[in-house]
Simulated scan of single mutants.
Amino acid sequence: MKEDLLTRTIIGLAIDVHKALGPGLLESAYKECLFYKIENAGFLVEKEKMMSVTFEDVKIDCGYRIDILVENNLVLELKSVEKLADIHLAQTLTYMKLGGFKFGLLINFNVLLLKDGIKRVINGY
């Protein structure tokens, strides 16, 4: 599936979750529900995917985990915060860089309209 179509489809599923739950819940609730929706839509999806850091040719587990990875291609970093901050974007880019992923979505569910809480992220490596 082309990245743009995949991204739009996942955004649509995230909007469905947000419409059903509304803002104000913990990030974990949105993560579980979105994972469920993506999996039921037939996509290859992983939750809490561990990412290691390579240091001096050794892979080291430092506790980095991607919230959701779709089709081994699209990184989803989910938040439920008052406002997205630069550190949230940096976190998303770090996961993308560590895994060699080009596309990501940073999604803040704590907004009235979910479209206002979505940032598309592209990593140029």
Score class of each variant (00 low, 15 high):
8 R>A: 15
8 R>S: 14
8 R>V: 11
9 T>I: 11
9 T>L: 12
9 T>W: 06
10 I>M: 00
10 I>L: 04
11 I>D: 07
11 I>E: 15
12 G>I: 12
13 L>P: 07
13 L>S: 07
13 L>H: 06
13 L>F: 09
14 A>Q: 00
14 A>V: 00
14 A>E: 01
15 I>P: 01
15 I>Q: 10
15 I>Y: 05
15 I>F: 07
15 I>C: 09
15 I>M: 12
15 I>G: 04
16 D>Y: 07
16 D>R: 12
16 D>I: 07
16 D>E: 13
16 D>F: 06
17 V>I: 11
17 V>K: 01
17 V>W: 00
18 H>N: 09
18 H>C: 06
18 H>V: 11
18 H>I: 08
19 K>R: 14
19 K>P: 13
20 A>V: 08
21 L>F: 05
21 L>I: 06
21 L>S: 03
21 L>H: 02
22 G>F: 06
22 G>L: 09
22 G>R: 09
22 G>A: 06
22 G>P: 07
23 P>Q: 09
23 P>E: 06
23 P>S: 07
23 P>K: 09
24 G>P: 02
24 G>F: 01
24 G>C: 01
24 G>T: 02
24 G>N: 01
25 L>E: 09
25 L>S: 09
25 L>A: 08
25 L>I: 05
25 L>Q: 07
25 L>P: 04
25 L>H: 11
26 L>A: 08
26 L>D: 07
26 L>Q: 11
26 L>F: 10
26 L>H: 08
27 E>P: 03
27 E>D: 05
27 E>H: 03
28 S>W: 07
28 S>L: 13
28 S>P: 02
28 S>M: 06
28 S>I: 10
29 A>Q: 09
31 K>E: 15
31 K>F: 10
31 K>L: 13
32 E>L: 10
33 C>F: 06
34 L>Y: 02
34 L>M: 03
34 L>F: 03
34 L>K: 02
34 L>S: 00
35 F>M: 03
35 F>R: 01
35 F>D: 00
35 F>P: 01
35 F>G: 00
35 F>Q: 02
35 F>W: 03
36 Y>P: 03
36 Y>K: 09
37 K>P: 06
37 K>L: 12
37 K>T: 10
38 I>W: 00
40 N>T: 13
40 N>A: 13
40 N>P: 13
41 A>L: 02
42 G>M: 07
42 G>A: 08
43 F>D: 12
43 F>E: 11
43 F>H: 12
43 F>Q: 14
44 L>W: 10
44 L>F: 13
45 V>D: 01
46 E>D: 10
46 E>Q: 12
46 E>F: 14
47 K>L: 11
47 K>T: 14
49 K>G: 08
49 K>W: 04
49 K>V: 11
49 K>T: 14
49 K>S: 14
50 M>G: 13
51 M>L: 15
51 M>A: 08
51 M>H: 05
51 M>D: 04
